[in-house]
Simulated assay, not measured.
Amino acid sequence: MTQAHQHTSHGDIGHHGHGHGGGHGGTQQDGDSGQAEILELDAEVLAEHIASITAWLPLEVEPRQIVDLGCGTGAGTFALLERFPEAHVTAVDASAGHLQFLREKACARGVSDRVRTVQTDLDTSRWPDLGTPDLVWASASMHHMAHPDRALRSVHELLAPGGMFAVVELDGFPRFLPADATEGRPGLEERAHKATDSFHAEHVPHRGADWGPMLAAAGFDVQDERTVTVDIAGNRSEAVGRYAHGSLQRIRGAAASTLSPEDLAALDELLDVNSPHCVLYRDDLAVRTERTVWAAHRS
């Protein structure tokens, strides 16, 4: 879709369009490139957590046909291919750039024969032929749907009898800084997040929704629900600094008009790669967020 909107993959600022193409500012290609960079960092930093979710899925039989809705650059696609070595994945997204990136990665990893990509807008009333999957995976993409009820019904019709729908959603954009950061402006990150509330209310009103009742209303039997807490110390991966920098840069775009001049100046210093106070050089970073997973069967 072009207006309203993956993980992601992990949040919404700068992912306006994840799973559906689009984006704000610059050309479509620029938007795809910027989003792809964040999605790749997200996949790298949170790889263990994605793997733990795929391992947890309460499946009685390993799926052979999987659809990844709003696949982005393929974090879920490749985690599912690794978890289910006999499976084939149909990766669906509206972004041609993301799908091209995914195909290149599939070739590099030697699994291109197990991946099919489909470019489509998931907010259209009629989806293309996606086969009859045993498992449909939607990570940080359902809350971007303009008509989530319709999308849920489409998934229900798509699934093989007894098939599973796994919905993975985050509670919001990850936090990276300690609460007392920055010096002179403690609590800066939280205020920056708060400054984006009106953006999210307008563009992604379903973020943070309880998908259990909506799944049940669409005819699914919700078998299980799990919340995964993410707390990754920055010293575990040098990618955390780049992930924080790219994420805060995107938050700035939506928060700039609402933040105080003092907060905006402090945020800009965090983003200035020539400043010794840049977030890239901090040794107190962490990635903190939560993911909730709903595992539902087609009744």
Results as ranks from 00 to 15, higher is better:
G23K: 04
I53S: 04
D272I: 04
L81V: 03
V279W: 07
G163A: 10
V89I: 09
G74M: 06
A239S: 15
L158E: 08
N274K: 13
C278R: 12
L81P: 02
T292K: 06
L69S: 03
A192E: 06
A179W: 00
D231S: 13
E262D: 13
R236T: 13
E40L: 10
V136R: 05
A140D: 01
T120N: 05
G14K: 02
S198V: 15
S139P: 09
S237E: 01
L248Q: 06
H20Y: 09
G212W: 04
T2Y: 00
V115Y: 01
V136F: 06
S141G: 07
L80E: 02
L285K: 12
D123V: 03
T227W: 07
D121G: 07
L188R: 01
T2H: 06
D113C: 00
L271Y: 01
M1C: 14
F220W: 07
A181S: 08
T120Y: 00
I38K: 11
D113K: 08
D210W: 03
H297C: 08
Q249D: 15
H206Y: 05
R83C: 07
G17Q: 00
A216W: 01
E189T: 14
H16E: 07
L259S: 01
P186S: 10
G31E: 06
Q223W: 03
Q249K: 13
A217L: 05
A151D: 00
D268K: 14
D272M: 12
L280P: 13
R288A: 09
H193F: 15
Q35A: 15
S95A: 10
D171V: 13
G72C: 09
A96Q: 10
E290C: 08
D268R: 10
L130P: 11
A55I: 08
H10C: 14
I251E: 02
V228I: 14
D134S: 12
